[in-house]
Design a protein around this nucleic acid. Structure first.
Lengths: 127, 127
DNA sequence: GATAATTGTAAGGCAAACCTAACAAATTTT
DNA sequence: AAAATTTGTTAGGTTTGCCTTACAATTATC
């Protein structure tokens, strides 16, 4: 689909950006840093990177907005996260924290195809 | 369990080392390089690293042997790989190549707990 | 046994992703 | 509005894991 080849790290950033945006209608670097347990300077760096790749718009001291592409990518990552969370929590029976942790990691490495199969599978099982 | 905190990369190396060892009763850096698609010099580096961490014995131009710990770690990674492969192949229905690729990636990030649950789950389903 | 080919190692470089420290801009407090 | 705090950025460093190039040791070939 999209040939961006985002690193796991950048996927984490755009995911966090989007979730914070949904919550607050705005994104502060400090928030991102807190959520991802990194320093503000690392966030700055990542934002520059995401902007270069055309996923967000963001000039010095400006507000962050998503490009169409950025929004799509963010939603895709979040979709992966959610289905994986359901799998780990509802099907394997991990607790919420561990289900979330595992989803966070696996979402960056699982193939699109595997994801689609997993979606069908979870849906099938849960009825 | 083991508090080694091996990187995904080093896990790949020790897994490859062990599998090659099982096949050939000996391990050549060239083989490792081929299997992991890296250069021989990168293998040297990784071996140094694994030796430092006490997983293998390996001096300059010497044969590679595993420590007890190293063997355990290798077997653990391989165990993860196998169960994940079964899940992707037998349960989700991915083809062999994609099942293998996904297993290779996920094995480095899934928690021990999740693995145990997955083992029970796969076992339960498949009878 | 000398030469050629293969394999292992060392040195030096690069990119990603993180860090700290210092400073600049913006916001809040008083 | 001045001072203090918070937030964003920059510069410079570290680590990991890879690379290339060059050379050393080993093994195979003649």
């Amino acid at each position: 689909m999209n040939e961006l080849n985002l690193s796991a790290s950048l996927e984490d950033y755009i995911e966090a950006l989007y979730e914070i945006y949904e919550q607050n209608q705005a994104v502060k670097a400090v928030e991102v840093a807190k959520r991802l347990n990194v320093k503000r300077s690392s966030v700055t760096e990542a934002l520059k990177n995401l902007a270069t790749k055309g996923l967000i718009n963001h000039g010095r001291y400006e507000e962050i907005t998503f490009t169409k592409l950025g929004e799509d990518v963010a939603k895709e990552v979040i979709k992966k996260h959610k289905i994986l969370y359901r799998f780990f929590y509802e099907i394997l029976g991990l607790d919420t924290v561990e289900a979330s942790e595992n989803a966070c990691k696996v979402e960056h490495v699982i193939s699109n195809n595997a994801l689609e199969k997993l979606i069908s599978y979870v849906e099938k099982i849960e009825k």
